[in-house]
Design a protein around this nucleic acid. Structure first.
Lengths: 188, 188
DNA sequence: CATATAACTGACTAATCAGTCAGTAAAAGT
DNA sequence: ACTTTTACTGACTGATTAGTCAGTTATATG
């Protein structure tokens, strides 16, 4: 296997379990089955490794979600696909999700350019603005609508992650809570 | 000033700026204007300090919010007071809020007993369950209702913290978004 | 006043850590 | 075949760190 990848995978596992501060590079190298020198061959500093892992995960998440969108549907259907894709991704990638959470609320975030943070958020914001302009969504501040959707998704995610539900029950919760957030932001 | 307190204050400042991992105890002691030995006199280990800070802040937040509640009002009014008190606290205690965020999404959280985490959440959950039983709130899973309220509050908080609004505008946002979450969970 | 206890100091240490480096092995280029 | 570049090693180092400890100062207590 690609050693660079195995470093990223080992780092993810250890960071989630022990945190950035309690995960020495030596441990990451050991877990990845490579020498300490190789780690620094690929990632000049530990910070570079942390940031690379962030960008790697963010890229994968962004791709998977934007891929799930088909613009042929109604805005409600598009948004629901976004919602479902995000929740499914988090459930299928628990470690990645926990890492992002930890990263986003740490001072490491400062090291990421604002434009990079916004990269995968921009398309959604564009769609939301269109929907507001067309009168599909309430005429509220875009940032507030975006915040409401993100916050809602995040919190339902927390619920789904801490309660292992059956396939049916899970879909029920997702459908019901989507209707709730939809009625909060949409013109009815 | 009490030296134990000044350690907690210095630690809060530095943790928020540099993160747990990048804040040596020596720096904390210096910032607090005491010797390294004194820090360990009060807090046997660095972890103990981090946990003590968490419990200190959580206690203060819990007190301030439960104090703001008067049970004479309608459930809607009680919940709105909760909402406003939480948002105001976060705005008036930005550092504390950031610290809690960082702590909650870090592996440090594991060091806190579940009952301690739930301590200040229990009364609210009790009120919510009553409101469900009385048919004031929709007959939904308590955990989901609780999650929806927390997530909503958290996200509006993020919005308020990153956009410095005038007193009027701020109140407007708070009132409007409270009505939104209320209509999401209440029987209308 | 005398004694005990609590608060406090700062130089010190043992351990750990991020990162280096001189050199080896493998792959790619010519 | 020869050379260059890339991938990789692991022992090593200098810096940093959490935590100690022998001793000092302040405060309370009898």
């Amino acid at each position: 296997m690609d050693k660079k990848t195995s470093v990223l995978e080992a780092a993810l596992r250890l960071f989630v379990e022990f945190g950035f501060h309690n995960t020495p590079t030596s441990k990451i190298a050991k877990e990845a089955g490579i020498s300490s020198g190789t780690l620094f061959y690929f990632f000049p500093t530990k910070d570079d490794l942390v940031v690379a892992l962030y960008l790697d995960i963010k890229g994968k998440l962004g791709c998977e979600i934007t891929e799930s969108i088909s613009l042929e549907n109604s805005f409600k259907e598009i948004l629901k696909k976004y919602y479902i894709a995000t929740l499914n991704w988090a459930t299928e990638h628990k470690s990645e999700f926990k890492f992002m959470e930890q990263f986003n609320s740490s001072p490491y975030l400062k090291k990421i350019a604002e434009e990079e943070v916004q990269k995968y958020v921009k398309p959604l914001k564009g769609l939301l603005q269109n929907a507001i302009d067309e009168g599909v969504l309430k005429n509220m501040n875009l940032e507030i609508i975006f915040t409401l959707i993100s916050g809602h998704t995040f919190s339902i995610n927390q619920y789904l992650l801490s309660n292992e539900l059956s396939e049916n029950k899970r879909n029920e919760v997702i459908n019901e809570t989507f209707e709730l957030i939809w009625h909060m932001i949409a013109v009815v």
